[in-house]
Design a protein around this nucleic acid. Structure first.
Lengths: 292, 292
DNA sequence: CGCACCTCATCAGCTCTGCTTATCGAGTGT
DNA sequence: ACACTCGATAAGCAGAGCTGATGAGGTGCG
């Protein structure tokens, strides 16, 4: 069997690629420039292809390819280590719960214990990684799915998921919008509208492609960060439409939340954790999963 | 940052766990028993927990955990290497197409070129791995999905997928079965029936849990291997029911193929490949994806 | 135009990792 | 009780992999 690509080399490679400099990478990693140079040379020899063009330092086609692999790979590696270590050493720190902003529906918020929990609001796609690497003990991820279908999570590691809530999905319209009086809308009727694309605050438009027959939505304005308030304010000001779970969409001044009737999708929230839960985590998990 | 777990050690660990013996593992890996012992000791020290109980050799709880991670991890590692190497060295061998048995519907078979392709029939869940590691150039995977939903594939590596066919799903009933005259059946009416579980030949019952409201099906008889003929023969003999895509289910003597009306699932086939396609592969892929 | 400078490649030397061989200790079957 | 098997441990040695010094190529500026 061939030598299974040393992760050290891989780590150096991604660092060099990120910083576009051997010397800089050496400084960051605590090596000498010479060592970094040898690392890259070793990788290139091992794979039989140049990975970086020098002067300026930039990945080649093969290098780009490797970069796509390296990230998830190192993540998984770290996740594996964290997972096993977690088995041995019980956590001294308080319970950390990672959640995306829209996952924090009223049911969830009500079920949180009054103290002893650190809540960490993260972009949606960082949550599985946070849980896998032990940065968080529990995760709450949300997303769009067909009713009673599980979410599609990136599998950085074998994680356990548990559905905790499903709510209707609404389009947040300024109350002056022509469709604002309707009882429900079909997304197909809104493909030409101006949409706000807020992948970390609202629901990602990208998730809808499959459900909408392959057609995506044109994002008019892109919002970064996890602040739902900013998003709803923009929607109220008429900068564009956005998708939100009903609890988050109702009661925003100047707007109306109209349920989406077609395609049939729901906003689903899942609890995610790695392996067996410790005492405190188990208690919180149970509170969150209690069907009311 | 902590040392990212040497894959060599990981590989020895899984080998030891598999063979339940240090000495055997040493023989298989071409090391001395001493080296293997040191490998395991190093891993255990690195992770701060015993991974194996000696005498008899068996994984501890933490070790079980590590095993779950190690397989996918080493697979990804190999996939990454293969993917990058593939970029540099164009394949000399002929085109290899990996497919599950039920993925080979009539449309697919018709579109295959008359020569120059090696067809490799594999269990469904080995196909992504085969494509990722370069064992195959193209893959055809199939499974159950909601209409126009993509399949859920284990992501061993970033693969490109392309839907090539969707067909109705049928239950294969012996023609003496009480429901055999019906135009369609709901799976909910058949939860108590005897089912044949043939994860590699037919469609896996496990895929249905979500669609069927969390309830699985009791497998009466389990069939291993990829032989559809054996499966249909068993169904005809009344040993149990099985799910098949319509083309595979029709025309089996002594049986009737009744379409499934509820839940709304289809048999979907997807073409999967890693990265840009070479000349021969591109031609085959195009033939397979041509909408007729 | 040429000189200083910056960046990566290469080389020599050293260290310490990681293998082997050899030996021991503990459990097992006869 | 003795021989045998299997894993742990010790000692020794070769080479992997780091450092520091130097070389080579490219760029900016006086």
């Amino acid at each position: 069997m061939l030598s299974p690509m040393d992760p050290h080399l891989l780590r150096t490679y991604v660092t060099v690629a990120r910083l576009a400099s051997f010397s800089e990478a050496a400084r960051e990693l605590g090596y000498t420039q010479s060592a970094v140079s040898q690392h890259i040379a070793a990788l290139e020899q091992d794979l039989g292809a140049p990975l970086l063009s020098r002067r300026p330092v930039a990945p080649t086609a093969a290098g780009e390819r490797l970069l796509e692999h390296a990230g998830p790979l190192l993540l998984r590696l770290e996740a594996a280590r964290a997972d096993v270590v977690r088995m041995a050493a019980a956590p001294a720190h308080g319970l950390i719960l990672a959640a995306s902003s829209t996952a924090l529906g009223p049911r969830i918020l009500a079920a949180l214990p009054a103290s002893g929990v650190t809540l960490r609001v993260l972009p949606r796609d960082e949550i599985p990684a946070a849980v896998a690497t032990g940065t968080a003990d529990l995760g709450l991820v949300d997303g769009l799915a067909a009713p009673s279908d599980p979410l599609r999570l990136p599998d950085v590691a074998p994680l356990t998921t548990y559905g905790v809530a499903e709510e209707p999905v609404c389009v947040l319209l300024p109350d002056t919008h022509p469709l604002a009086r309707r009882p429900g809308v079909r997304l197909g009727d809104l493909t030409d509208a101006r949409w706000l694309d807020a992948p970390d605050a609202g629901l990602p438009l990208a998730h809808l492609r499959a459900a909408n027959g392959g057609h995506g939505f044109r994002p008019a304005l892109r919002i970064e960060g996890t602040d739902v308030r900013a998003l709803t304010a923009l929607a109220a000001a008429g900068h564009g439409l956005t998708l939100l779970p009903r609890p988050a969409a109702t009661g925003v001044p100047g707007t109306v939340a109209v349920p989406v009737t077609e395609p049939r999708v729901v906003h689903r929230t899942e609890l995610v954790y790695a392996g067996p839960l410790g005492g405190a985590a188990a208690a919180v998990a149970e509170a969150l999963t209690e069907r009311t």
